[in-house]
Amino acid sequence: MDYFIRCLKFILPAAEVTILVTVASLALGVLFGLLLAVARIYGRPGVRLAAALYSRVVRSLPSLVMIFIVFFTMVSVVPGASPLVMAVVALGACTTAYQSEIFRGAIQSLGSGQMLAARSLGMSRAAAIRFVIIPQALRLAIPAWSNEAAIVLKDSSLASAVGTVELLRRSQHIAAANHHYLPAYLACALIYFCLTFLTNRVLDAAEKRFRLRT
């Protein structure tokens, strides 16, 4: 039990890295995911195809494979990039694809009437997307999005494989140093559990707060 507490204390600081990787990847994902979703619905045929292709290809690849692809690419292209940056790029690229599907579903569920009404009020297409479509779509996307946030949080553990010192890597350190594995990994699991629990609560609250009133 003593050792378990020691593990907790040793591993806990790495939660910062895990949270950083998760939040940064998710932020990249929101930005590019929205862009991709809009491109796929309102873009020219060529743009649509490219966006769809990106989404299909990346969603077919395991996150771990993506992490190693980014790792080997960045090692040769940007020497000296930190494992943390690599993890964010890789997980960001993955979640961009999943989030683009979430946002696409949300935009499509709005129906075309919203766009028609905005256009008939004299808004440009871009303005309609920015001020009419996206504010509604973002709200509709929250339940699926919070699912994705939990997935990214858990997938950030895969970044330990390329040397990002996040929760799991930190647990490996203390476990290997003491040749005592079970308490270390259980402590790690406990911290993850608290983090996902917290994430779910926060996003549930956000969903209630921002729900569309119809």
């Binding site: 858990k154 950030s156 553990s157 799991l168 647990s171 594995y181 990994y185 993850y192």
Partner: peptide
């Protein structure tokens, strides 16, 4: 909890 952590608990723990 992440699958990877579960895997490590089973295999190493």
């Amino acid at each position: 909890t992440p699958l990877l952590v579960q895997l490590f608990v089973v295999y190493y723990g």
